[in-house]
Amino acid sequence: MIGEIFTLLLLNPMVNLLVLLNNVLFDSFGLAIIAFTILIRLVTFPLTLRQLHVTRSMQGIQPRIQEINKKYSDPKRRQEEVMKLYRESGVNPLGCLGPMLLQFPILIALYNAVRIALPNSPEALEKLSSHLYDWSYLQHAVPVQEHFLTMDLREPNLLFVVLVGVTTWAQSKTTVTVTTDERVRSQQQMMNIMLPLMFAFFALQFPSGVSLYWVVNSIVGVAFNILTYGFPALRIEPLFKVRAPRAPAAETQPTTAALTSDRELRTTHGSGRSKRQNRRRRP
């Protein structure tokens, strides 16, 4: 039942949109995948932005969480204080999970739509018939042209393996690290290396049409990250101003760490606090 709803509401529209874009974009399925990925990322941008906002807010209060961890040895008390901090800062620790989870079905559908619209076997073309709408403009186009820039989009391609690795790495590098804990940070650095390798390994098995989708998806992800977080190495400022977490009440406000570690918190002030109050806290 859920699978049918998923197919009806997400998968089929995506498959048909892909074929439609293929027709519009000079019968080039490669261009269709690129346009399609960008289009879907733009449509889901509000969700992505919200997720990035929450991640950034979480990063803002990390120094305070560290302070609490140092201050309280009792785990129960520590947890209470952390939850209190979340409440007072207006940060929902699971807030980034909602938008991310909502994007998951869309991403899965997108991935499957690329695979379905690009049949790698006669059976797969037979299966495509059950996903296409009853519109001759679409049906005349299948099977779509499987070559793009001399590459067979149905087969794995070494160039795409490399591109998948590089773009995944770039996306990891431009994503803000939430924690300030050194141990966790080093783990995340390890992940920044392992994840691209893992996806590059997957790309060895996947049709390069799927890899093309992944590469474009990662490039758009990098662009969104830069627009949201900026890119200090190239002196690029964030385009979107992120809501800062509310400053908590004075008794739970920890030390100055929060103000020195995050550029955004240095320049904004939370509700109920003046810029002067913030300035006084600077060392």
Binding site: G3, F6, L11, F104, I108, N120, S121, E123
Partner: peptide, 14 residues
């Protein structure tokens, strides 16, 4: 739902 989403579209091999 996630496992279902993933499972509902399988690879069609020759």
């Amino acid at each position: 739902c996630l496992p279902l989403f993933a499972a509902c579209v399988s690879v069609t091999n020759p």
